[in-house]
C-alpha cells in the first residue's frame, strides 16, 4: 500500500486502494490523538495556507488543528480582507502566496473546479476543502472512516443519502467513495433535488423516504443548500420536512442498528428531528472527531508519506 499523489482534488480520481490507504493512515493518527502529547513533527518546517474563499467553520477548524498537530506553519487567508475583493484573480492571489515559498494550499471555494485550476497553475500541493457543488473529498474520507470504524466494513452495506443531492459536494464525494468501496448507494429527496441522472453514477434513486431508509445500514442526511440553489426547488421547508425529514416514526421503521450521519451544519427540525440528532444512533460528533485524524492523514500523505507504516507508533 503506497500513496503517490501530490494533490487531493477529488475522490473520483482515487482508487479503492488510495482510499483505504488514507483510512489506515488516519487510524494511526487517531491513536496519536489519544495520547497525552498529541503533536507529531511530520510537517515541521512546512507551510500550509488555508485559503477559504467561502465561509466554513467545521472544515476550517478541523484543517487548522490537523496542521498544528503535524507541526506545520499555518497562514490563514481571510478573503474578506484579501485582494480577491479588490479584483485580483485567484491565479494571481495564489501565485503571490506561492512566492512566499509555501508548501500546501487548502482551498475552499464556491466555484467547482477551483482547486483543479490552482493545481494547474501552482507548484504547491493543493487540497480540496470543498469546491462548489463538485466535491468535498476530506468529508467523504472521514465519512468512510466513521462507517468502517462503526460497521467494520463498507463493502456490501446499504447507505442511503437523504436530502439535497443536486447541490451537494458531500453527496458526490460520498457517492464516489462508497461505490468504489463496494457499498450499495441509495439517494432520496425531492425529484427536483435528486434527478435521475445520478443513477449514471452508480446509485439507486428514489423519492419514497420510507422505502429508501427501510433496509439502510447508514442514513446520511444532507441539509438543504439554500446558498447554492437557484431558487426554491420545493414549496416550503415545512413540506420538505413532512415528506423527507427524519423523525422518530420513520426511524422506528429502520433496521435497529441503522446509524445516522450528517456532515453538518444541521438544520434541526428541517431534515432531522432535534432529539434524533442527539440520540445514540447519531454519529454526528464522532464524524467531527474523526475528521481531524483523516485530515492529518491527508496532509501527511500529500507531503510524501507512503502510508500508516510511516506514522510514528
Amino acid at each position: 500500500m503506497s500513496w503517490n499523489r501530490k494533490h487531493l482534488l477529488d475522490i473520483e480520481s482515487l482508487t479503492a486502494e488510495d482510499i483505504t490507504t488514507v483510512l489506515d493512515t488516519a487510524r494511526a493518527f487517531k491513536a496519536v490523538g489519544e495520547r497525552a502529547i498529541k503533536k507529531v513533527p511530520a510537517l515541521r518546517g512546512k507551510t500550509v495556507v488555508n485559503l477559504f474563499v467561502e465561509p466554513s467553520t467545521r472544515t476550517r477548524t478541523s484543517f487548522e488543528l490537523s496542521e498544528q498537530r503535524l507541526s506545520a506553519d499555518i497562514v490563514n487567508f481571510n478573503t474578506e480582507a484579501s485582494s480577491l475583493k479588490k479584483g485580483e484573480t485567484l491565479k494571481d492571489t495564489a501565485r503571490n502566496l506561492e512566492a512566499l515559498n509555501i508548501d500546501f494550499i487548502v482551498i475552499r471555494h464556491s466555484a467547482s473546479g477551483a482547486p483543479h485550476f490552482l493545481a494547474r497553475v501552482l507548484d504547491a500541493s493543493v487540497i480540496n476543502a470543498g469546491d462548489g457543488a463538485h466535491e468535498h473529498p476530506t468529508q467523504a474520507l472521514l465519512d468512510m472512516f466513521t462507517i468502517r470504524e462503526k460497521k467494520g466494513r463498507i463493502a456490501g452495506l446499504n447507505v442511503t443519502i437523504l436530502g439535497d443531492i443536486l447541490y451537494s459536494r458531500v453527496a458526490r464525494s460520498d457517492i464516489w467513495a462508497l461505490t468504489k468501496l463496494g457499498a450499495n448507494v441509495t439517494l432520496c429527496g425531492p425529484s427536483t433535488l435528486v434527478p435521475r441522472v445520478f443513477e449514471q453514477m452508480g446509485c439507486r434513486v428514489t423519492h419514497d423516504v420510507e422505502e429508501a431508509i427501510r433496509d439502510a445500514d447508514i442514513i446520511n442526511l444532507l441539509r438543504i443548500q439554500h446558498e447554492r440553489q437557484r431558487k426554491s426547488m420545493f414549496p416550503s421547508l415545512g413540506e420538505y420536512t413532512s415528506f423527507f425529514g427524519l423523525n422518530k416514526a420513520r426511524l422506528a421503521r429502520t433496521k435497529p442498528d441503522a446509524l445516522i450521519m450528517h456532515p453538518g451544519p444541521i438544520n434541526r427540525g428541517v431534515e432531522i428531528d432535534s432529539e434524533i440528532a442527539d440520540c445514540d444512533r447519531s454519529l454526528v460528533l464522532q464524524q467531527v472527531t474523526n475528521g481531524l485524524a483523516v485530515r492529518m492523514a491527508v496532509l501527511f500523505l500529500v507531503n510524501g508519506g507512503k502510508g500508516p507504516q510511516e506514522v510514528a507508533p
Partner: peptide
C-alpha cells in the same frame, strides 16, 4: 438557462457545474 455554465446532463452532474 438561468446561470448555467455547461450542458445539463451527466457531466454537469459529475463536475458540479450548473
Amino acid at each position: 438557462v438561468i446561470d448555467g455554465v455547461m450542458h445539463e446532463g451527466y457531466w454537469s452532474t459529475v463536475l458540479g457545474l450548473r
